[in-house]
């Protein structure tokens, strides 16, 4: 009887987890193309980063947890500065901001040096649909061939994954 209850509990917990993580974007598939302007208005394409390991960080200046995560990304970026120099690694910040002023100010305030792009369309941005984003922060790691190899890793899991891949 007890075993049955425990099994039921596990099934419930796991199905809740599964529903929570239901997504169109999957590991193994080619990352959908992203083509959006940088703060200078220059168009930037994800496909132009082929050959590098790319961490796509979906964020926004209005998203408190995303802003809180930026210093952690900075640590990762600085730790792998050599790989960045050798064209082996890059971070692509894709913002769901609405206000250009807020976006640019946040980039400056947080002293972000990696690539930043946005169409300033908030949740109406095409990337939100293409990447089935349900909430921020959210990220995707794309390998040198443009294939998704990790989804939504944060903290030490993110740090370790990138370090291991760049080894």
């Amino acid at each position: 009887m007890m075993k049955k209850i425990i099994s039921c509990l596990f099934i419930v917990f796991f199905s809740v987890q599964l529903f929570a993580q239901e997504q169109i974007i999957q590991i193994g598939q080619i990352a959908p193309e992203i083509a959006l302007p940088t703060p200078n208005g220059k168009m930037m394409q994800l496909s132009s980063l082929k050959g590098k390991l790319v961490l796509i960080d979906f964020w926004a200046s209005w998203c408190a947890p995303c802003v809180k995560e930026q210093p952690e990304l900075k640590t990762i970026y600085e730790k792998h500065a050599q790989a960045v120099k050798e064209n082996k690694f890059e971070i692509l910040g894709v913002s769901l901001d609405k206000s250009e002023e807020d976006w640019v100010n946040a980039i400056q305030r947080l002293d972000i040096h990696w690539l930043q792009i946005s169409d300033l369309k908030f949740w109406r941005s095409k990337v939100a649909t293409d990447y089935a984003i349900e909430g921020l922060p959210y990220n995707v790691i794309v390998d040198e061939a443009g294939k998704i190899i990790a989804i939504n890793l944060h903290g030490t899991a993110l740090e370790n994954f990138i370090a291991k891949h760049l080894q």
Binding site: W123, A128, I133, E134, G135, L136
Partner: peptide, 9 residues
């Protein structure tokens, strides 16, 4: 309770 995307849009 989650965000404007899932709870409204």
């Amino acid at each position: 309770s989650n965000n404007i995307k899932t709870n409204w849009i």
